[in-house]
Design a binder for these strands. Structure first.
Lengths: 192, 192
DNA sequence: AATAAAAGAAAACAAAGTGTTTTTTATCAA
DNA sequence: TTGATAAAAAACACTTTGTTTTCTTTTATT
């Protein structure tokens, strides 16, 4: 890819991210983005079909970055429980806060977190399989996966809205406290 | 309120709801709403400041209806556990499906469910207090409340996206299975 | 350094949508 | 009936979008 293209793309992403920190997605215009990024109108539309497309690509890039890093970290997991992954995700979210502050502010966070949850489903599934958890007798596996990634995302939303007062480690321990009791209530056939 | 006003307001709500069943909120124009509702442009703006305002009012009306009905039902709760309330909410959601099908479809469901979650927080809090649950030693109460209403909302989202295959009773039992273990892990001082 | 190819800038454009104003007509409640 | 209120219709200024055209700059390659 051409240097100019990379520069333009980065400038647009950066401008967009800054704008998202100020106002909600729906109130941002393409004009504001290109003014802030210092690129021409034609240039913007050469890179992105629409504003929606820009948002989608930004979300995908960020989520891929965060989740893939968490995926890697599960490789090291020495038979340990999944808390490491969740803590890892939280730390990553906080570290990248400055980059993604916009997406994590007000209304717009919903959009990002929806992408995030979709990626999380895969991560949670692999965690469950990795740990060889017997699936709960009464609860369908897809319900369980949705419950775990769904409540993780809701926790992140709550965390952000509360201005991230808790540390990732605190949150991780709370989260484990509400999730592990369900996982340990497994089929009694092998624990008796 | 004038009969004409009531009629107009109802026509706009109805048209808007139908349109939401077809396409996402952001793609609906005021022109489409007034064409579908058979009201003049001026009339629309006499009733609602903007399209966002219309959405907000619709969400508020629906959520108030559903949640207040659940609030009432807790009055009868004869010392029983909160499952009755959640099951009640689920049944209500399904019964009103035809009225609110639009808000519960695709992207737009997010918007509705965010309103829903806010109202739910109050309901969950009153449930916890009602039941006189000792608060968990390790988990802050607001974390717990957010976890419960958050995962309820995520469950509803999952339910809707999966075309509501499960019965409210099924879902209620799954939900209790993932929530009650947390609540029963209460302060050991009074169970020992 | 010279050059062809690619990328970007600037300006103008049609089309669509928003929210307001003005005028006229219909409906309500008393 | 009558004054007051609500709604309709049409025109409006304005904003935003996405495209087109023309021209300039930057890049990689020779």
């Amino acid at each position: 890819m051409d240097r100019r293209q990379k520069k333009t793309r980065a400038a647009i992403f950066s401008a967009f991210t800054s704008l998202l920190a100020e106002k909600s997605y729906s109130k941002i215009t393409v004009q504001e983005i290109i003014d802030s990024a210092n690129v021409g109108r034609t240039t913007f539309y050469a890179h992105f079909e629409t504003k929606d497309d820009l948002l989608k690509e930004l979300c995908e890039e960020l989520v891929a970055h965060i989740v893939s890093s968490a995926m890697d970290c599960t490789l090291y997991s020495d038979g340990n429980v999944p808390e490491s992954v969740f803590c890892h995700l939280l730390r990553h979210l906080r570290e990248n806060y400055n980059n993604i502050i916009g997406l994590l502010s007000c209304e717009s966070s919903e959009i990002f977190l929806r992408f995030f949850k979709d990626s999380l489903n895969g991560l949670v599934l692999s965690q469950l399989v990795n740990q060889d958890r017997k699936s709960h007798v009464d609860i369908p596996q897809d319900f369980l996966i949705n419950h775990i990634s769904g409540s993780f995302v809701e926790m992140v939303l709550w965390w952000i809205k509360g201005r991230m007062k808790q540390t990732p480690a605190d949150l991780d321990s709370y989260f484990r406290a509400v999730i592990e009791p369900i996982l340990s209530t497994r089929e009694t056939s092998d624990s008796a």
